[in-house]
Amino acid sequence: MFKRLPGAFARAVLVVIVLSMPAFLLPDISRAAQEISLIIGGIVAAFTLFEYASTHPGLVDFRFAPPYNRIRFFTFSLQVLLLVFLARATMELDPFSPDIIAFADWCASLLNFPLSPVNIAVAMVGDDGDADFRLLIERAAALSYAVAFSSMIFFALVLWLFKWPVGRDNFNLWVNLPTFEPASGHDVERRLNRDGMINILVGIGLPYVIPAFVSRASGWFDPSVLDNSQPLIWGCTIWSFLPASLVIRGAALLKVGYLVRRSRPTGG
Rank of each mutant, 00 (worst) to 15 (best):
M1G: 07
M1D: 13
R4E: 14
L5N: 03
L5P: 07
L5F: 15
P6Y: 11
F9M: 08
A10K: 03
R11M: 10
V16G: 04
A23W: 12
L26T: 06
D28Q: 12
L38M: 12
L49R: 05
L49I: 10
S54D: 15
V60S: 02
F62T: 07
R63W: 01
P66R: 05
R72V: 04
F74G: 14
F76Q: 10
V80G: 02
V84N: 03
L86T: 04
R88F: 07
E92P: 02
E92H: 09
F96N: 11
P98C: 03
D105R: 10
C107Y: 05
C107W: 05
A108E: 09
V122W: 08
V125D: 11
G126Q: 01
A140E: 11
L143K: 07
L143Q: 01
L143M: 12
L143S: 05
Y145L: 11
Y145G: 08
V158K: 12
L159N: 09
F162H: 04
F171E: 01
L173I: 14
L173V: 11
W174M: 08
F180T: 07
R194V: 11
D195C: 10
V214M: 15
R216T: 08
A217T: 09
S224Y: 15
D227P: 10
G235A: 13
L246Y: 13
R249W: 05
A251I: 03
A252S: 15
K255E: 08
V256W: 01
Y258N: 04
L259S: 02
V260A: 00
G267C: 00
